[in-house]
Design a protein around this nucleic acid. Structure first.
Lengths: 230, 230
DNA sequence: TGTACATCAGTGAACGCGCGTTCACTGATGTAC
DNA sequence: TGTACATCAGTGAACGCGCGTTCACTGATGTAC
């Protein structure tokens, strides 16, 4: 095995170990020394592979975003009838929710409180954008379908229109502002529900998280006008 | 000043200092030693007032929940026409959002990732319940008003009905399940929006957070059937 | 009202721990001629 | 094909730091008679 191959493999081993630690102790308690110990290296040796703890953290963040992105895209692609936007929407929501429950510490790293002293570099942006991308793709397709049978939407004034200017560059085909607001509500609801659930705020209130999540996302799909008979 | 009075005052001083540190460095970086230093005490002296770091943390959590609870209840009570449920709902939503933006680290402590190694005791439950209580009160009053002009709701099946059993004990007057789901969506949306905003996920996407939040909560109020002409 | 004793606040040193990062060094792997 | 040199991986010790918690002790404040 060449030096270069070895390097790739050891880098991967370190990151895998780090990922395992992340899943066990959470982002705040992640320790470079503990990871090195577990790999069977002295802590200073890790610096040959990651210039600092923050770079290792960045690698983990990108990995987690990509994993979630994969799950979401796979869920979407798994729906045969591409015109069944409701089914695709629900598949995407479930993918997020399922991944979060299976990987709570990773979810907390991505969507929980920021890690103190750490600022995510721009490297993480493309990976992070995959999840929102799935929502936006559905929004555009739904818009193209035309006949809108969703819940009535409030008119959008000029301040809000300007506030949404940041979203538009991510779109290839236009989505009307009032409907975009509904998609953003769906986005906030899915992540809000997941965070409230995972961080313990539904404890003893909602007795069946999956049932409730299904009801909620079903309602969102209806509000978005996705559940219509073809 | 008596010993007892002194004790109360110093306990308060410690907690106030802790609170200031929390606001500056966030929950994860909160240090008992640093707080003691700032108060002008040796770190071991703090143990006369708080048996451990976790108890101090609990006190801060309760304080923060109560502060948010105060803000929410004050906002609700500030609306003169008690039958204007839309206005009251928007006041409550804004109170949460405003408090979170003014106290981001405190918000993260309450609604962000759990602090590693810390489990909130039951002491925190009543304070935490005040915020959700405001939503539930509005839900009940809206239900009593009767004429429901909100967006159409999806039927609730038996699994979801059972899942909602945990919410019912908190109610004095009944709320129909399908409408309760909408109130829970509103709850998830408000906290989801706030978390996504504060934790940086709307950065460069939404250009005016307040405008967008207003649009979103306005839409929620309409979906809940609160914005009707009397 | 004064004295003897008990209670309590706060000190300072210590324990035992862990962290991220740097640096001089050894020994193995690669490269150029 | 063999040798001289450069590159690189990994070591081990150290730096400097901070943390929560315990404990024997001093000196002040309270209480009972």
């Amino acid at each position: 095995m060449s030096r270069a191959e070895n390097r790739v493999e050891i880098t991967r081993t370190i990151q895998e170990t780090a990922r395992r630690h992340l899943a066990e102790v959470g982002p705040a308690a992640l320790s470079l020394r503990a990871i090195a110990r577990d790999v069977g290296m002295v802590s200073s040796a890790v610096y040959r592979y990651f210039p600092s703890r923050d770079d290792l953290l960045t690698a983990l963040i990108v990995e987690a975003y990509d994993e979630l992105g994969d799950a979401v895209e796979r869920a979407d692609a798994g729906v045969r009838r591409r015109t069944d936007l409701a089914k695709r929407f629900l598949a995407v929501c479930d993918a997020i929710h399922d991944w979060a429950r299976a990987n709570p510490h990773e979810y907390a790293l991505l969507y929980g409180s920021p890690v103190p002293g750490y600022a995510a570099p721009d490297t993480t942006v493309p990976a992070a954008a995959r999840v929102t991308g799935a929502f936006l793709r559905l929004a555009q397709e739904s818009e193209r379908e035309g006949d809108d049978l969703g819940a009535p939407t409030r008119a959008v004034g000029s301040t809000e229109r300007k506030a949404l200017d940041g979203v538009r560059p991510a779109l290839e085909s236009p989505v009307a502002d009032d409907r975009m607001v509904r998609w953003l509500i769906a986005w906030s609801t899915v992540f809000g529900h997941t965070s409230l659930e995972l961080f313990g705020h539904m404890h003893r209130g909602i007795l069946d998280y999956d049932a409730h999540f299904a009801q909620v996302t079903g309602q969102l799909a209806a509000d978005l006008g996705l559940t219509r008979v073809p």
